[in-house]
């Protein structure tokens, strides 16, 4: 017979066991969220394709056409980073508001409440999985082959993104109950964070090389940049799906002096061996895992007064 203890003390082991027991609830909540979201819309879940498609089109037009990025198959490059970023951003954004948003349930029913935050990550994972299928189709259309040998990297990268998103969603959803500004702050931060992650531009080509050339004294800044788990995730996705580390630019440059036209070679992705990606992701997975445990612990501490703060 199970014995349940309700007390102010938070035992991490007990919480994790309880979470593990709530797998079916998680599945149910994810299903509910998806069902409810597209309940009365004609297109239904197809809407999840529309937003990323529009974003892709805009970025492609601005950076690929107007600013002439010169990256071949730029749409594939964009999509490989953008979809996983969107998954992360939407998970954190909707996750932050979920405890306040579902106050009715939180105040009346006893269950491990961080399940609600995890469920938002879960439903976003479903959406991104569907978007990836479309991306795969896009790659077939463009005859753009991924790096088949590096495919396991995707699993690891997706795991890092999921664990990181879940950790932040759990932590922020609890903080948001006490400080309602969190929601708005996160919206702004996520936007800045997006541009601090090499989704639209190339880390190596635009950031690293420019830094090395113009401000070599500041080159250490790249470690700060790489400390962002989402950078590792996005770079890995690009490495596997876009696959081409060096490309020939589609824009024409002219040699100084002779004025002869040529297509410059771009180092679009970092010239690292695959093992570097694995190592980077492994470190990030451990760090994010620790963050997740910390988030669950803090959530448990803050949870005690949810019912009165909501």
């Amino acid at each position: 017979m199970t014995v349940r203890v309700v007390s102010a003390e938070v035992r991490l082991g007990a919480r994790l066991r309880e979470l593990a027991r709530s797998r079916e609830l998680l599945a149910n909540l994810v299903r509910t969220e998806i069902k409810v979201k597209y309940k009365n819309s004609a297109l239904g879940i197809a809407w999840t394709m529309v937003a990323p498609a529009i974003t892709l089109a805009i970025y492609y037009f601005v950076f690929g056409v107007l600013l002439k990025a010169g990256v071949p198959d730029y749409v594939i490059y964009l999509a490989s980073g953008l979809l996983v970023w969107n998954f992360f951003a939407a998970s954190v954004l909707t996750g932050t508001g979920v405890i306040v948003g579902r106050a009715g349930i939180v105040k009346k029913v006893a269950f491990p409440r961080e399940i609600l935050s995890i469920a938002t990550v879960g439903s976003q994972a479903v959406y991104v999985a569907l978007q990836w299928i479309v991306l795969a189709a896009l790659m077939v259309v463009f005859h753009h082959a991924p790096d088949w040998g590096a495919l396991p990297l995707l699993v690891l990268a997706a795991a890092v993104a999921t664990v990181f998103a879940a950790a932040l969603a759990i932590l922020l959803s609890a903080v948001n109950v006490y400080l309602r500004d969190t929601q708005h702050l996160i919206e702004v931060l996520i936007m800045a964070w997006f541009w601090a992650t090499p989704v639209v531009y190339s880390y190596w080509n635009q950031l690293y090389l420019n830094l090395a050339r113009s401000y070599p004294g500041w080159l250490w800044l790249r470690y700060l940049y790489l400390a962002n788990p989402m950078t590792a995730v996005v770079l890995s996705f690009q490495r596997v799906l876009y696959a081409k580390t060096t490309v020939v630019s589609t824009t024409t440059a002219y040699r100084p002096g002779t004025g002869a036209p040529y297509h410059p070679i771009l180092q679009q992705l970092p010239p690292w061996p695959i093992s570097t990606y694995y190592a980077l992701l492994a470190v990030m997975l451990i760090a994010c895992g620790a963050l997740l445990l910390g988030a669950i612990k803090i959530f448990g501490r803050l949870e005690g007064n949810f019912a009165e703060e909501l």
């Binding site: 017979m1 199970t2 014995v3 349940r4 203890v5 309700v6 007390s7 102010a8 003390e9 105040k107 009346k108 029913v109 006893a110 949870e303 005690g304 007064n305 019912a307 009165e308």
Partner: peptide, 19 residues
Amino acid sequence: KTICGVLQPTTGEVLVRGK
């Protein structure tokens, strides 16, 4: 609510055996 686990007590604890 404390017995159900919706609220946590400030001090003390509640034990419930069974579902």
